[in-house]
C-alpha cells in the first residue's frame, strides 16, 4: 500500500514536472552541473571553482563542476547547447568558446548567439604588449618604427593559433599597417618563457600573467589594450592614449546556460553569480590575479557576446586566418 502510494506520488510529481513550467521557487531541487569545457586548473576552471565556492552557501543544492575539455571548449559547449534549458546545466567558458570559435571552427556544433543564454560576463583582463628585455624599442612609437623598418621579421609569440592574444597581435598589425612573424605556442606560459629568454621578440599577454615578470625586469611592457590604464601599471599608456583606436581588447570569462532558460531561474542565477563575484571574499583575490570584475546581467552579456563575435570575425577575415578542417 505504502509502496503504491509512493509510486502514485512519484507519478504525480513527474506529471507536474513535465506539465507545469519550472518555477524559481522549486529551483534548485537537485544539484546543478557547471560544465567547464577546459581542463582542470586553467583560467576558466579557476573562475568557475572560485565563484561557485563563494555562491554555494546561499544556494540550496550542490554546484558541481564538470570538466569536459576539447577543441577550445567546443566539445563541452556543444553539449551544453544541446542540454535542457532547466537551469541544471550551466557553463563557464572563455572568449574563445563564446566568440572566436564560431568563425574559426565552422563545423562547431553550437552557435553562442542562437544556442546559449548568457548569465554574466564574470571577469575580463586586458592584454599588454611586452617585448624581450633587450629589445631596442622603449615605447610603442619606436616599436612600430622597428616593425616598419624590418617587415615580416620580428617574432610575435602567442599562446596558440586563433587564441585571443594571437588575434590581438593580428588586430595590432592591421591597425598599424605592420607585418611580423606569428610564432604560436601551446599556452601562454611557454610563450612568456621564450620572450623572457630572448627567443621571441614580442607578445600580447594578459596583464595579470606578466605583471611580475615586468617588475623583475625580465620583459618590457610598452602599452596595454584596456580602455583605461591598468592599476598594476599606472605609468603604462593604453593604445587609445597613443592614438591607436580600436585596440581595446580584453580576454574574458563568462557563465551561460542553454538557450531558453526560464526568466526567473535566469534572474536567480545572475543574481547569485554577480553577488559572489563582487563579494569581499572573492573580488580582491580575482583582482590580485589581474582580473577586472565585470559581473553584468544576462542581457548585457548577450549583447556583448554578439558584438565580440562580429568583431573577431572581421579580424579573422581581414587577417585571412584560417584553421582548416
Amino acid at each position: 500500500m505504502l509502496k503504491s502510494l509512493h509510486a502514485l506520488a512519484g507519478g504525480v510529481a513527474l506529471l507536474c514536472a513535465t506539465a507545469m513550467p519550472i518555477v524559481a521557487q522549486d529551483y534548485p531541487s537537485k544539484p546543478v552541473t557547471v560544465i567547464v569545457p577546459f581542463a582542470p586548473g586553467g583560467a576558466s576552471d579557476t573562475i568557475a571553482r572560485l565563484t561557485t565556492q563563494i555562491m554555494q552557501p546561499n544556494f540550496a543544492q550542490p554546484l558541481v563542476i564538470e570538466n569536459k575539455p576539447g577543441a577550445t571548449g567546443a566539445v563541452g559547449a556543444g553539449e551544453v547547447a544541446r542540454s535542457k534549458p532547466d537551469g541544471y546545466t550551466l557553463m563557464q567558458a572563455s572568449i574563445g568558446t563564446y566568440s572566436t570559435n564560431l568563425t574559426l571552427q565552422p563545423d562547431a556544433t553550437y552557435d553562442a548567439r542562437k544556442d546559449l543564454d548568457m548569465l554574466t560576463i564574470a571577469v575580463r583582463t586586458p592584454n599588454a604588449l611586452v617585448t624581450r628585455p633587450d629589445f631596442p624599442a622603449n615605447n610603442v612609437e619606436e616599436f612600430v618604427a622597428e616593425l616598419k623598418k624590418k617587415p615580416d621579421a620580428l617574432l610575435f609569440a602567442s599562446s596558440g593559433a586563433g587564441s585571443s592574444d594571437h588575434l590581438t597581435a593580428e588586430l595590432f598589425w592591421q591597425l598599424t599597417g605592420t607585418t611580423a612573424i606569428h610564432v604560436p605556442y601551446k599556452g601562454g606560459a611557454p610563450a612568456q618563457t621564450d620572450v623572457m629568454g630572448g627567443h621571441a621578440d614580442a607578445s600580447f599577454q594578459n596583464v595579470g600573467a606578466i605583471a611580475n615578470f615586468v617588475k623583475e625586469g625580465k620583459m618590457k611592457i610598452l602599452a596595454v589594450t584596456g580602455e583605461t590604464r591598468s592599476p598594476a601599471f599606472p605609468d603604462v599608456p593604453t593604445f587609445k592614449e597613443l592614438g591607436i583606436e580600436g585596440l581595446d581588447v580584453y580576454s574574458w570569462q563568462a557563465f551561460s546556460g542553454p538557450k531558453g532558460l526560464p526568466a526567473d531561474i535566469r534572474t536567480k542565477l545572475e543574481k547569485g553569480l554577480t553577488e559572489a563575484l563582487n563579494s569581499p571574499d572573492l573580488k580582491p583575490k580575482l583582482e590580485a590575479m589581474g582580473y577586472e570584475i565585470v559581473a553584468n546581467d544576462g542581457a548585457a552579456a548577450d549583447a556583448f557576446v554578439a558584438q565580440e563575435i562580429d568583431r573577431w570575425a572581421k579580424v579573422i577575415k581581414d587577417g585571412n586566418i584560417k584553421l582548416e578542417n
Binding site: A74, T109, A161, P184, K186, L323, E324
Partner: peptide
Amino acid sequence: TDVNTGTLRYTMGMP
C-alpha cells in the same frame, strides 16, 4: 590540432 596553423589532423570529424 596542428600548433602552427590550428588545422585539425586525422581527427575524422570527431571533435
